[in-house]
């Protein structure tokens, strides 16, 4: 029997496999529900005083406002993921360091960030960070709420990226280290040229998974009145007269927005997962 030296235990890497479960049927169901809720709400509006615009017309009026909010969700997700990746790689590299002084604190922070509820981290960051930072002699640097929230979302993901890196490095067979050692590579050279390049393709699917989770979490920022999609949808509904029949179509519209954005990422992740499963 031939050994498979590059086999990888997916449980090591993938924590929340939201993306693998996502299916086009979910999207279809969502669309059907959205259409039904619109029809239902429009029927209710028709029964109301004649000046009331239909639910569809109201949604159409406010869609640009909600989309502008959604752009902020995306900006927050990009920034937070970039930050999480940088921080996570740093922490992950410290976690695999042979020196205890680096390894143990990195292990501690990774576990802390991974296992704290996101909402707790969000509240902590929102209240702990100042509104602006004053550097002596310079202009004060403003720290708006949406930026603070971005930082807060990046922290738990950073912990998970750190763990993805550690898992990926540990999954590389020791023979790779040995043969690099035999060819006079130093530890740093081995990591840079041999180990990490092999980790990247293993780490990309779980990394994308965490990006999807992160994006789906950005509406939490609406708690702090950050003008993202959910907050804007709520303010639109209030501006349209806070009619209860708008609730369902507006929130289902938001769900559709997020689905349309996440679904292609899900397909891509699944393809990559399958491709690497075959290649290894």
């Amino acid at each position: 029997m031939s050994r498979r030296p590059f086999q990888l235990d997916p449980r090591l890497l993938v924590s929340g496999r939201v993306l693998s479960a996502l299916d086009w049927r979910h999207g279809a169901a969502l669309l059907v529900m959205f259409a039904a809720s619109l029809t239902f709400a429009s029927a209710q509006s028709a029964a109301a005083p004649p000046a009331t615009p239909s639910a569809l017309a109201t949604l159409a009026t406010w869609t640009p406002h909600i989309l502008r909010g959604f752009v902020l969700n995306l900006v927050m997700s990009f920034l937070a993921m970039a930050l999480a990746t940088v921080l996570g790689i740093g922490l992950g590299l410290m976690q695999i360091s042979p020196g205890r002084l680096l390894r143990l604190p990195a292990r501690f922070f990774t576990l802390l960030l991974r296992n704290s509820p996101w909402l707790v981290i969000l509240f902590a960051i929102m209240y702990l960070l100042p509104i602006e930072i004053r550097i002596p002699g310079g202009k004060p640097i403003e720290f708006p709420d949406w930026l603070k929230a971005t930082l807060a979302f990046s922290l738990p993901v950073a912990g998970n990226v750190s763990e993805i890196l550690r898992g990926a490095v540990n999954s590389i067979p020791t023979g790779q280290w040995e043969s690099a050692d035999g060819l006079a590579f130093t530890r740093a050279q081995t990591l840079r040229w041999i180990i990490l390049p092999q980790c990247i393709r293993r780490a990309i699917p779980p990394w994308m998974n965490w990006y999807a989770l992160l994006t789906l979490s950005t509406p939490m920022a609406s708690i702090f009145s950050v003008h993202e999609a959910v907050w804007n949808a709520q303010s639109s509904m209030e501006a349209a007269g806070a009619r209860p029949e708008l609730l369902l179509p507006f929130y289902l519209f938001l769900l559709c927005l997020f689905f349309i954005y996440i679904y292609p990422i899900a397909i891509c992740t699944r393809k990559l997962e399958r491709k690497y499963a075959v290649a290894t």
Partner: peptide, 13 residues
């Protein structure tokens, strides 16, 4: 000193 192993250990990437 060069060394060659039983499991080849080539760099797969």
């Amino acid at each position: 000193v060069g060394i060659v192993f039983q499991q080849y250990n080539l760099f797969p990437h």
